[in-house]
Design a protein around this nucleic acid. Structure first.
Length: 509
RNA sequence: CGGAGUGUAGCGCAGUCUGGUAGCGCACCUGGUUUGGGACCAGGGGGUCGAAGGUUCGAGUCCUUUCACUCCGACCA
């Protein structure tokens, strides 16, 4: 590709609403363009190209693992969501609308219902199982607060996969296979990540693991052990139980728990004075959709006592209809690891992938059955597996950038090599640049030739901003028969004889 | 939804208090000089001033209503 023909609108100024490196550089490097704000973005040619490369890595590894790609309708009938009971649970994040006949539709935020619907119409026998189907398509979530560019857009590209099994054992086998496959994907993309235990959220199900790309700018707090492999989202993290007695000072946190059809209950959470309530755990402990602040100090109808308090608290002290025990306390830094006894600490991560053991959460209510060897009707056992593909672009930049711009990893780079002709009016420089460009193309190297009538400084700045892994700078040293080979990471450069540059590139790239 | 703020050229902003020719920087176009770190000179194009209503001889500016977006806190790949 010739730079002079490329639509790549780089800018010197940072957009005023961008605070994250990935957001700033995606826009400044001319990869994406904001569409009237509010979490909607256009992908410009090179942004699209990078997205396609990341997508290709995801697809290759999944196909190798035996998954099959499909493409589900983006617009989905609300009726399906009624069947699974998620229409209410998902709440306002669903973008709902009507067609001209007044039928209700939503834009899919994730496609469990659609995939289940597809499979229940086509799969009837245990002989057709197991099955792992996925798609890499647009999703829409009407986020309360979109921000950070591609990190939390409202429209985004997600890979969502669903597996169907005749037994829980087989689903667990596939779950493990997907964990391995995901590790391969993130490793190929050059990311530093950690697999952690997670809460299952609105999708439901039992076991779930998140793939966290480690970055200080990550939105999730994850708890990791200094001494072993243990890692968990703060929402699901556990530690060795602490010991309390009747002298332990306790506090009660009052919250309003929200349920389907507008129902709500006042709940009191009892925990040690110096502990912190973990809202997700608390929410799960009462099977609520959400917890909100309770305005009045009314007496709670349910009391949940932190389980490690045990006998340290007298349950008769509360005037409530129901008293339960559950893990509702947030793990603190310095707590003891339940696996090995080491010290736990916090770190930040970007949730780039999430795998769930769904069980029969969707197949049961939606009537997705098959006939087993004995001709008996059984609900299929399911797993579901997601990767935020467009978010991965942001995650790659968060982990790979400097104060000049992006530093793309090998598998994600928009080009393998950039050839920079310093002065377009110098015939010798142009001649070598063109020759090298043609040679690289014929070798099958994806190369960008900067043939613009710009000054050296402008070209170098654009090179650093875009972040192609390597460049050849053909400049004034050509009069002494030398060119420069530059590596974007660290901006180190070495002088190479102009005569030998072609061989050098053949050996190096 | 709570709190704070902003809407004026593609982007970033001034002008609004005190009503009177629509401005600046970047980007863009033309010509010329320049070519190792975003250069310079000269000329040029580009605007429903977020929207609606009102006050006024006259509204970007004052009044009312409304919409959108951004930032800080509770959802999620």
């Amino acid at each position: 590709m010739r730079y002079s023909r490329l639509l790549l609108p780089t800018t010197k100024e940072t957009p005023n609403d961008a605070s994250l490196a990935s957001h700033i550089y995606l826009i400044r490097a001319g990869l994406i363009q904001s569409v009237g704000g509010s979490g909607l973005y256009n992908f410009l040619p090179l942004g699209k190209k990078i997205l396609d490369k990341v997508r290709a890595v995801v697809k290759e590894e999944l196909d190798k693992a035996g998954c099959q790609e499909v493409s589900l309708s983006f617009v989905t009938p609300s009726a399906l969501w009624d069947e699974s009971g998620r229409l209410e649970k998902y709440g306002k994040e669903l973008l709902r609308f009507k067609d001209r006949k007044d039928n209700d539709f939503i834009l899919g935020p994730t496609h469990e219902e659609m995939m289940v619907n597809l499979v229940r119409q086509t799969v009837k026998s245990y002989k057709q199982l197991p099955l792992n189907l996925y798609q890499i398509n647009l999703k829409f979530r009407d986020e309360i607060r979109p921000r950070f560019g591609l990190m939390r857009g409202r429209e985004f590209l997600m890979k969502d996969g669903y597996s169907f099994h005749s037994s829980t054992e087989d689903m667990l086998r596939e779950f493990a296979l997907m964990e391995e496959t995901y590790k391969k994907i993130f490793t190929r993309l050059g990311l530093e990540f950690r697999v952690v235990e997670a809460d299952s959220g609105a999708i439901g199900g039992s076991g779930s693991k998140e793939f966290m790309v480690l970055a200080d700018s990550g939105e999730d707090t994850i708890v990791v052990c200094n001494d072993c492999e243990y890692g968990a989202n703060i929402e699901a993290a556990t530690c060795q139980p602490k010991v309390y007695d009747t002298h332990t000072a306790c506090k009660t946190v009052i919250k309003k728990a929200l349920y389907d059809e507008g129902k709500s209950l006042c709940v009191g959470f009892v925990l040690p004075q110096d502990a912190e309530l973990q809202e997700t755990k608390a929410c799960n402990s009462v099977d609520a959709n959400d917890l909100i602040e309770c305005d009045t100090q009314q007496s709670p109808s349910i009391v949940v006592i932190e389980e490690t308090l045990g006998a340290a608290v007298d349950p008769n002290a509360f005037d409530a209809e129901e008293i339960n025990y559950a893990d509702i306390v947030a793990v603190q830094e310095g707590d003891t690891c339940a696996m090995c006894g080491g010290a736990l600490r916090y770190t930040k991560g970007i949730e780039a992938g999430h795998i769930f053991q769904l069980g029969t959460r969707y197949s049961e209510p939606m009537g997705t059955h098959f006939l087993d060897e004995n001709g008996k009707t059984q609900p299929m056992v399911m797993g579901t597996y997601g990767i935020g593909v467009s978010r991965l672009l942001a995650a790659i930049i968060e982990q790979n950038h400097d104060d000049k711009g992006c530093i793309w990893t090998k598998e994600s780079a928009p080009f393998a090599l950039q050839i920079i002709i310093s002065n377009i009016k110098d015939d010798a420089q142009v001649a070598l640049g063109e020759k090298l460009y043609e040679a690289m193309l014929s070798l099958g190297v994806d190369v960008l030739l900067d043939d613009r009538k710009d000054r050296f400084g402008a070209k170098m700045s654009d090179y650093e901003l875009l972040g192609v892994p390597h460049a050849v700078v053909i400049g004034k040293n050509l009069s002494e028969g030398k060119v420069e080979f530059v590596t974007r990471k660290g901006m180190s450069s070495i002088e190479v004889d102009a005569d030998g540059i072609l061989d050098f590139l053949r050996d190096t790239l």
